[in-house]
Nucleic acid binder design. Structure first.
Length: 516
RNA sequence: GGGCCUGUAGCUCAGCUAGGUAGAGCAUCUGGCUUUUAACCAGGUGGCCAAGGGUUCGAAUCCCUUCAGGCCCGCCA
């Protein structure tokens, strides 16, 4: 059974109604780990629905969290906002209503692309609307209990007059610089590093926030959460997962949800992804270079508790090939490979939206890498494919859209992470190169042959071989001459294939210029 | 100090949530193909499943111990 089915069945044993939650703080651009949290939840959600469960998928945007520091992606002027809730900090680009919104909007866009559309809650709204008021009061009244749980389980020492409540300073608006000192219903007294001392009435909303370790369990009860994945960073002994479960049970009297721990996604050769460290491959990059169904495939085929190594180089091409292979097997066009388990379920879960009735058109992904460097736009690319008979005459809308999307992803990959060895550029004019005498001879014979040559990969390839024999120059040298006059480099994509995708006139013209 | 993950062919890994003859891709070798961005086709070689113990008629798979590597936590979240 697929892991998502196993989890769904475990949940259904308890009850049929479920609320699956994910919570991600919009403190910066989406990263790959977030993707895993979202997609893991989505997989369980889909399985629950499929098995007749009554499930809801929610996303809680922790936009009331204070800005921790000036992250690498921020201008240094953001120093003044450190400590303020993300929802009350101006947008870095100026187009959104707040800092949090800036990242939330693109995050939700990314989710939509990969086929995830949860119900969105914003912590800032929940706090300001008063949803948390009761939870805050419960927490404050159980200060000793919470304090004991935290000190016992996590082994950390809390300050003497610690309270499970972070006041937002009425003067400077910061959450992280205040020190609550005394709670006497309904007031919390506090001092702030900005010099302001005061007290807030917790019956009024939006005056402060529960610390994370308390906020999490409070929210479970409030929203009826029954399942939530968490990264392994939370899963350590004495970590938030453990203290959260205890606080949920003993303070909020709510059975803690199933807290699935997922492993991190590592980058090949770079280690773990981390939201605040500014890593080499952002989630955005990953989404733009990986087709959505392939990204889902990557998550779905791996058990959540195993780490995944994402290779943004040639490994990406292999991943897409593997996806296509699996697709072929799913539609019965290719034989199943021994040891390929759960391929059916994995394929289904990999689809962002619906499953196609017919198998999508396959074009080798590596080939798209070549074509994308010959054609500049999708319409040019399509024209080449049509002209060379690589596409069926009647191209369905779905297939065209599928190919166009893949072409876009390939293009982004080429612009960013593709290794140099797969890159080339068809030069607009004859590159500044020096050909040997024998190469010139070969090319001039080739020039004579072109007009009558059937412009197909094999024919072209054979013609070059004949030339090599005729002129007695090594085949390598012959190929090299062709790459040099077109690309200005020694090597290139498979010659026959490559040339057939260029127009005959263009090649003839270039060869003519080269032997002048 | 603690937690999680990993250890299966030369390399990358699947198989471990069904205990029942050890799998794939790459590499290598053979044959075919006039042989290029990690070419294609057919076939072959290749494994004490990290080590040890236990459960079992039967263990890569379940349990315990050990070893090695990776990541995370021990500020905040």
């Amino acid at each position: 059974m697929h892991w998502a089915d196993v989890l769904a069945e475990e949940l259904l044993k308890k009850q049929t109604k479920h609320v699956l939650a994910t919570g991600i703080t919009p403190s910066g651009p989406i990263h790959i780990g977030n993707m895993r949290e979202i997609l893991t939840t989505d997989a369980v959600y889909r399985c629950l629905i499929e098995k007749g469960g009554d499930a809801e998928f929610i996303y809680i945007c922790d936009d009331y969290d204070p800005l921790r520091k000036v992250y690498p992606h921020l201008p240094s002027s953001y120093q003044q906002y450190v400590g303020k809730p993300l929802s009350e900090i101006p947008c870095p680009c100026g187009k959104h209503t707040s800092y949090a919104d800036h990242y939330l909007v693109s995050f939700l866009g990314s989710l939509h692309t990969i086929g995830v559309n949860p119900r969105v809650y914003r912590a800032s709204e929940m706090y300001c609307r008063g949803d948390y008021n009761e939870s805050i009061q419960i927490a404050l009244e159980n200060t000793t209990k919470i304090r004991n749980i935290l000190e016992t389980l996590s082994g950390r020492k809390m300050p003497k007059d610690w309270l499970p409540y972070n006041v937002k300073c009425e003067t400077c608006g910061r959450l992280s610089t205040t020190h609550p000192s005394l709670y006497e219903f309904p007031n919390v007294e506090y001092t702030c590093d900005c010099g302001h001392d005061g007290e807030v009435d917790i019956r009024k909303s939006g005056q402060g926030k529960l610390p994370w370790r308390v906020d999490w369990p409070a929210r479970w009860r409030m929203l009826g959460v029954t399942f939530e994945p968490c990264g392994k960073d939370h899963a350590t002994v004495g970590g938030t997962r453990e203290t959260g479960a205890k606080i949920s049970e003993e303070v909020y009297r709510y059975p803690p949800p199933g807290l699935l721990v997922y492993e991190f996604i590592l980058l090949k050769g770079m280690g773990a992804m981390h939201s605040s460290k500014g890593t080499a491959v952002s989630g955005e990059d990953m989404l733009r270079m990986t087709p959505p169904e392939v990204l889902r495939f990557l998550i779905m085929r791996n058990q959540p508790n195993r780490h995944i190594v994402f290779d943004s180089g040639l490994g990406l091409l292999t991943l897409v090939d593997e996806y296509d292979k699996e697709e072929g097997v799913y539609f019965g066009k290719e034989a199943e490979i021994k040891g390929m388990k759960e391929f059916k379920k994995i394929y289904e879960l990999s689809q962002p939206y619906h499953i196609q009735k017919k198998m999508p058109l396959h074009l080798p992904y590596r080939h798209l890498v070549t074509l994308n460097q010959i054609a500049k736009t999708w319409s040019e690319l399509k024209e080449i494919l049509m002209r060379t008979g690589q596409l069926p005459k009647k191209l369905t809308k779905e297939d065209e859209e599928h190919l166009r999307q893949r072409a876009e992803h390939v293009r982004y990959w080429l612009d960013t992470f593709a290794p140099d060895e797969v890159k080339f550029e068809v030069k607009e004019t004859l590159p500044d190169i020096t050909l040997t005498e024998e190469q010139r001879t070969m090319l001039s014979i080739f020039k004579g042959k072109i007009p009558d040559l059937s412009w197909e990969p094999e024919a072209i390839h054979n013609a070059i071989y004949e030339l090599s024999e005729q002129t007695k120059i090594p085949i390598k040298t012959a190929f090299s001459a062709i790459y040099q006059i077109l690309l200005g480099q020694e090597r290139g994509p498979r010659a026959g294939f490559f040339l057939s995708n260029l127009s005959k006139q263009f090649v003839l013209k270039r060869v003519t210029e080269a032997v002048k």
